[in-house]
């Protein structure tokens, strides 16, 4: 559990926005969307790290950076001490095999014209996992692993339900025997009863194959259930990271508190206990100065408006990026 597999260091990513004609005439600089503003994380061997946040906070961008779908503007990701964006690593495709991503939408992430068997066999061929004559056997094994019937190999994706498609996506990711899985909203599109089936499968496979998982989701209950550690992201920055149970039972950052209390409880007697957050997520085109959360925070002071709080360890809690975490927690 203690060995670090992946180290993400001060990751920044901004997407340029096309300049309007008026901006060009007025010689205004081009704007950019700051999707990630200095994310640092460590992923440890065999753990599940949950990543939560509102839409637009950069959690999917982070996942895509990790599998090299986006190149960061600055910052580094080291996988087993090798920079994955370095020249040597770029040529080496083994990283692509060892770190696999699974996507949110089970309807658009599988090729509709390929049968399940072909989808899995393609992954095996590209990475030369098995000699040609063993591929059919391996496909059978994979289908069994994710508990799909054997006749599934002949079928096309449209013949499957959403839950079964996500199983195919999991089988495809596992085909190449990866060490790290990046699950971007893997079960968000599924109904609750099916969601539970897929989550159970993921937990079981993790145990069996000793996988490390980065679990990106907006469903807080689910993240709490599957994660060992959790990172809360707000406007491209980690505002709190720590042990899952500690964070969920006693969140320290005012944003984590509000986010967690906003998830509707299943108990009708809990009505009206949610901490209401004022306003909405500011546009990443125009990130507020200082602490990015200060415009919505009830505990804001002058310091918050100007100084960006750094992530620091809090006794008995995880790491928190808030100037006033101690005082706020005392009053709570």
């Amino acid at each position: 559990m203690t060995q670090t597999v992946m180290k993400i260091d001060d990751l920044h990513l901004s997407f340029p926005v096309s300049r309007s004609l008026l901006d060009v005439v007025q010689r205004k600089p081009g704007k950019s969307v700051n999707a990630l503003n200095g994310v640092s994380l460590e992923l440890k061997q065999g753990e599940t790290l949950g990543v939560v946040g509102e839409s637009g906070c950069g959690k999917s961008t982070l996942a895509r950076c990790i599998v090299r779908l986006y190149a960061p503007t600055s910052g580094q990701i080291h996988f087993e001490d090798e920079n994955i964006f370095g020249a040597a690593a770029r040529k080496d495709r083994s990283y692509n095999r060892r770190v696999q991503m699974m996507f949110q939408d089970p309807y658009s992430s599988l090729n509709p014209r390929m049968s399940t068997g072909d989808i899995l066999a393609e992954a095996l061929r590209v990475h030369q996992m098995r000699p040609e004559n063993e591929i059919a056997g391996r496909v059978e094994e994979l289908l069994e692993l994710v508990r799909l019937p054997q006749d599934a190999a002949e079928k096309l994706p449209h013949e499957f339900s959403g839950g079964q498609r996500q199983r195919i996506a999991i089988a495809r990711a596992l085909a190449v025997e990866p060490e790290v899985l990046i699950a971007d909203e893997l079960v968000s599109a599924l109904d609750v009863s099916v969601q539970a089936q897929v989550v159970n499968l993921l937990l079981e496979l993790q145990e069996r194959l000793k996988l490390t998982i980065l679990f990106v989701a907006h469903d807080l209950r689910l993240v709490r259930h599957v994660s060992n550690r959790v990172a809360v992201i707000y406007l491209g920055r980690i505002v709190e990271i720590g042990d899952s149970e500690t964070l969920f039972s006693a969140p320290s950052h005012p944003y984590s508190r509000a986010l967690l209390s906003a998830a509707p409880s299943l108990d009708p007697d809990d009505k009206g206990v949610a901490i209401q957050l004022e306003g909405e997520l500011p546009s990443p085109l125009n990130v507020p100065s200082g602490c990015p959360f200060h415009v919505r925070c009830r505990h804001v002071t002058a310091q918050c408006r100007t100084v960006v709080p750094a992530l620091r360890a809090l006794e008995g809690r995880g790491e928190v990026a808030c100037h006033h975490a101690e005082e706020i927690n005392q009053h709570a």
């Binding site: 599940t48 539970a196 989550v199 937990l203 209950r221 709490r224 259930h225 060992n228 899952s244």
Partner: peptide, 15 residues
């Protein structure tokens, strides 16, 4: 099936 008040990282009940 909703993961609430169940021990973390255990198998969830599923229909």
């Amino acid at each position: 099936s909703v993961p609430q008040d169940v021990p973390p990282r255990t198998q969830l009940y599923s229909v």
